[in-house]
Design a protein around this nucleic acid. Structure first.
Lengths: 334, 334
DNA sequence: CTGTTAGCGCATTCAC
DNA sequence: GTGAATGCGCTAACAG
């Protein structure tokens, strides 16, 4: 059931069928109708593998997500898909689940398969494999990570600026004993947010206590941080916590509230990402909003432009975060 | 940079290279080493498209998810991936986002591409396209939906039993005015849960108020239901709500708590799915637990068995749900 | 154990 | 505007 069978049924040659598929204007309307009819009755579907083998292009993008659990990445995926679909490209999604072995496994899957380009939210440092792939003719764009060098494209967020935004907000509210909860040694973005935090501190020029609490970027991690805090005597607790993502902030919030710690009166909490959930908590969470949809959209745009040879002015797009103030830092003022 | 180039560099014939790839035991160790060395220096990657064109098989599964936002499906995807990877199969994931157009779009994407089989969580009724695909030689398994007929495989959950479980629990706690929040006209699973609920009611044989509140299966929908309830005079409110999934229950919970309605004293709430979040809310949510990971695992198992021609005793697997009791129905008793 | 041959389904020259 | 030939990269016969 290939192009040949369609040709036989329609009483034309295979190449005419091919023309109907790829250059419909070259085929006489009457014959075209015959061919299309034959395709319908036969239930013909194009074999992309063969097409790819022949042309070297498949109008397909591979997307490797870091953590499909995090709504932030799901939203990003949606941005990629929406743009790609609108341009009539297909998207194949996968999830590295923050595991290096799965990341490289999926990189292999895509390297071997008909994808024209790859969008990846890398697990750690951008994998070496990407350079091989580029040499192999498969371009890639780094998402949520600033690219180094000129060969790569990237779409990233200004995490330093975001960290600065969050801590400046806390300082402005008068906090002088701030804790940072995150994983700066292992996650670049968190390192940048921490860097931004210290910059805000320096800029304020006021003596401020600043503690870093190491934690995994999950709700479980947040709950651990919470336990650690409620175990301290109230006087020893920081007056504000900057959680390096919303999941951590949510876990923290749950523990604090359950132990009667008032938020923000006793401890103010600010998160990062502004996931949908953040606004819907018992105490709505202040956060730093990032535009995951726009990021995904831009990544797809960049990649497809590169693939279709469109000229681009810029290979590295950086989005600016935005402070979203809710009750968890300012209470129900007014 | 194909098999031929490797052959040239290694000083052997292309088919020897092919043998190294597919039947290593047939090649003399010395030559095999040469070939492997050549592959490494050339950075050779197999072209799956060509391989597929030749063999008709690609060791690849397509997975079409309904709603990547819902942790339930993410967990299911993980079950699929873990099993498939363990068997050395690749998985290509996509997300229909509860939209029929995207579902059929992805069905097309997979129909045209080298996937050997498809696992799908269908949007509504199992799409007609699946039958075409099966005729085309691509088997599929329905997930989270009982299959009809013998041609299809399916992995499903006993939603009727789950609904029964939930409402029996509420009845046992003495509730006589229960509301059901969900979308029974549009979602089969919800219809089944509702059916189970009415069965539990009938089995109890006690006069009980039972109201159905139509709502979308999102947190936003849950919040709407919450608003509707708090707008009623307390006496008119039901004493318990069975939300047809946890997202709805969570949205509902937020609104109730914020308006000073006590849970479960004033209104008890039970959800469905037992997502990770459910246990971590201000008032931990009672729910009906489903085994999404096991479901995904079983789906992959079924499909790969079918694809490899292994004999299977059963084409339809049904998992039983399990009641998880937490504070939102029984409070902090004891 | 190794090399030679043919063809999977399609798009693309090039004749007609 | 249409049809016949060619080859994309690979694997499975088969011959040596």
């Amino acid at each position: 059931m290939g192009i040949k069978d369609v040709a036989r049924v329609a009483g034309v040659s295979p190449s005419t069928v091919s023309n109907v598929l790829n250059h419909p204007e070259r085929v006489a309307p009457a014959k075209r109708a015959q061919v299309e009819q034959a395709m319908r009755t036969l239930g013909f579907v194009r074999n992309e593998a063969a097409r790819y083998l022949r042309t070297g292009a498949s109008r397909t993008l591979g997307l490797i997500l870091l953590d499909a659990w995090n709504p932030f990445f799901t939203e990003m995926a949606r941005g990629v898909e929406d743009y790609a679909f609108a341009q009539d490209w297909a998207v194949l999604v996968s999830n590295s689940d923050r595991r290096a072995d799965r990341e490289s496994r999926y990189l292999n899957v895509f390297a071997e398969r008909p994808v024209d380009g790859i969008i990846i939210v890398p697990h750690g440092d951008p994998p070496e494999r990407l350079a091989d792939l580029r040499r192999q003719g498969i371009p890639s764009v780094l998402a949520d990570r600033r690219g180094t060098g000129d060969t790569t494209m990237s779409v990233s967020l200004d995490d330093v600026g975001g960290g600065q935004l969050a801590v400046a907000h806390l300082l402005e509210l008068g906090h002088r004993d701030i804790a940072f909860a995150g994983d700066p040694t292992r996650v670049t973005q968190v390192r940048d947010r921490l860097l931004g935090a210290t910059r805000a501190l320096a800029a304020a020029g006021r003596p401020t206590q600043f503690t870093v609490i190491e934690t995994a970027l999950t709700m479980g991690g947040g709950r651990q941080v919470g336990k650690q805090l409620v175990d301290q005597p109230p006087a020893a607790r920081p007056s504000a916590v900057f959680a390096s993502n919303d999941l951590v902030a949510i876990g923290l919030l749950q523990v604090l509230l359950r132990h009667g710690v008032r938020v923000p009166e006793d401890i103010a909490v600010i998160g990062y990402d502004d996931i949908e959930f953040a606004s819907q908590l018992a105490v709505p969470l202040s956060s730093v909003k990032q535009p995951p949809y726009a990021m995904g959209h831009a990544a797809a745009e960049l990649l497809i432009a590169a693939l279709t040879g469109e000229p681009r002015s810029e290979n590295h797009v950086v989005f600016q975060p935005e402070l979203v103030v809710r009750e968890s830092t300012v209470g129900t003022r007014g």
